[in-house]
Amino acid sequence: MAVQGQLRRLREQLGLSLRELSQRTGIDASALSRYERGHKTPRADTLATIAAALGVEVELRPARSANARFVDALSQLQADAVAADPTLLDRAREHLTGLEGTSASAEQWRRVLDAGPSAVIAVLTSTSPDVAALKSDSPLAFVVQVSAQRRRELAEAARAS
């Protein structure tokens, strides 16, 4: 979630006004308001000060590329489809038939599919960089149909975020 959404949600959960958070942090209330609305991004040290006042920790991670966010969005659609219809795993297995020994990811997917829907969903919804390539080679991409229009919308959203 974006910083601004987190800041406001946490402040409101604690029942704090902007003025009260300003007093706790020593940061001007108008600056806090700009951070919450996304009009300005706080520096890392400022964010750490705000987080401490809200009783949370800040975790900084490298930004994900638009392509990675697009793959994540497509993978989420596939995960949702599997949750709704686990028989899709059989069709994905059929897609892998004949690909024995052709790629490491085919063998990995075969093992994941054999582990069942929850394992497939776990891979598809993982944000770990270690599974990014596996998600990109998902056999479910051939089973779960996504319209060209929906793909464009997902790509635009990935570029915008």
Score class of each variant (00 low, 15 high):
Glu57Leu: 09
Arg152Pro: 00
Ala157Gln: 10
Ala73Gln: 13
Asn67Lys: 13
Gly26Glu: 07
Met1Arg: 13
Arg159Gln: 09
Leu124Met: 10
Arg19Thr: 15
Gln76Asn: 13
Leu124Ile: 07
Leu74His: 01
Ala31Pro: 00
Pro42Asn: 10
Val146Trp: 06
Leu134Phe: 11
Ser103Met: 12
Ser136Glu: 14
Asp85Phe: 03
Ala148Gly: 11
Thr49Tyr: 00
Arg34Cys: 02
Pro42Tyr: 05
Ala157Arg: 11
Asp28Asn: 15
Gly15Phe: 02
Ala31Met: 15
Leu32Lys: 03
Val56Phe: 08
Gly26Asn: 02
Arg8Cys: 04
Pro129Asp: 14
Pro42Phe: 08
Ala148His: 10
Glu94Ala: 14
Leu21Ser: 05
Thr125Trp: 03
Thr125Asp: 06
Ala68Phe: 02
Leu10Glu: 07
Pro139Ala: 05
Ala53Phe: 06
Ser75Met: 05
Ala119Leu: 08
Ala66Tyr: 01
Ala148Phe: 09
Arg64His: 03
Leu113Ile: 04
Lys135Ile: 02
Ser138Leu: 12
Phe70Pro: 04
Glu107Leu: 06
Pro129Ala: 13
Glu20Ile: 08
Arg8Thr: 07
Leu124Asp: 03
Arg91Gln: 15
Gly5Thr: 10
Ala133Leu: 14
Gln23Phe: 05
Thr97Cys: 09
Gln78Thr: 01
Arg151Ile: 06
Asn67Met: 13
Arg69Pro: 01
Leu88Asp: 07
Glu153Ile: 11
Leu10Met: 06
Arg8Trp: 01
Gln108Asp: 08
Ala68Leu: 10
Leu7Thr: 04
Gln23Thr: 09
Ala51Met: 13
Thr49Gly: 00
Val146His: 08
Ser17Asn: 09
Asp80Val: 01
Ser126Glu: 08
Ala52Leu: 07
Gly98Thr: 12
Arg11Glu: 06
Lys135Met: 10
Val3Ile: 15
Trp109Pro: 01
Ser136Val: 03
Arg24His: 05
Leu16Val: 05
Arg69Thr: 06
Val71Met: 12
Val146Glu: 08
Ala148Ser: 11
Ser75Val: 08
Lys40Arg: 15
Asp72Arg: 08
Thr25Phe: 07
Ala66Lys: 03
Val112Asp: 04
Val146Thr: 15
Ala73Leu: 13
Ala104Val: 12
Ser147Gly: 14
Arg11Ala: 10
His95Asn: 10
Leu47Met: 10
Thr25His: 04
Gly98Pro: 08
Asp137Lys: 01
Ile50His: 03
Arg91Val: 09
Ser65Gln: 09
Ser126Gly: 02
Arg64Asn: 01
Leu88Glu: 04
Ala44Ser: 11
Trp109Met: 07
Ala81Arg: 09
Leu14Thr: 02
Leu74Ala: 00
Gln6Phe: 02
Glu100Gln: 14
Ala119Ser: 14
Ala133Pro: 02
Thr127Gln: 14
Val146Gly: 06
Glu94Met: 10
Gly116Arg: 03
Leu134Ser: 11
Pro117Asp: 15
Gly55His: 11
Asp130Ser: 09
Glu107Trp: 04
Ser33Ile: 04
Met1Gly: 15
Lys135Trp: 05
Gln6Gly: 00
Ala29Ile: 03
Leu99Met: 13
Ser128Ile: 05
Leu134Arg: 05
Ala52Gly: 13
Arg9Tyr: 05
Asp137Met: 05
His95Tyr: 15
